[in-house]
Amino acid sequence: MLTICENNVAKIEAICREFNNDKGELINVLHQAQHTFGYLPEEVQEIIALNLNTSLAHVYGVVSFYSFFTMIPKGDHPINICMGTACYVRGAEKVLDEFKKLLNIQVGQTTADEKFSLSSLRCVGACGLAPVVLVGDKVYGRVTLDGVQEILDEYKS
């Protein structure tokens, strides 16, 4: 059976209360919960379903529909590669492939040591620096294929 500590239950209850335990606010509740926990594991979805008085199937249906929601925990250093138009034409896909190769994971996954996770996003508004990579909140501009290893090395220790 899944377990969750009462501290985390209290956090979820507070989020649901913020939205009046209204099942129509499910997406907002999920956003907040993901912001709090970094991801949406099964037990978190169960507690949300209970508090919003809706079925677990419904909650999971919404979580699995939107690509923004994830059930996989993010790494200590979440990596985001911008796939917006400007970055894309300046080789973002190749940069992404290099990250996939070096980390041996796909987009949406986290490395086994939970250090890095890989996602893509659309335009961070820094097209002049294309292609752009974010690690946590830090922005790297004009990233080259050789630069990928250098970026990872910064976080290796």
């Binding site: 059976m1 899944l2 377990t3 969750i4 500590c5 009462e6 239950v9 099964e42 037990e43 169960e46 507690i47 209970l50």
Partner: peptide
């Protein structure tokens, strides 16, 4: 069969 709530 709800998720079990623990202290820790």
């Amino acid at each position: 069969n709800h998720v079990e709530i623990t202290k820790e």
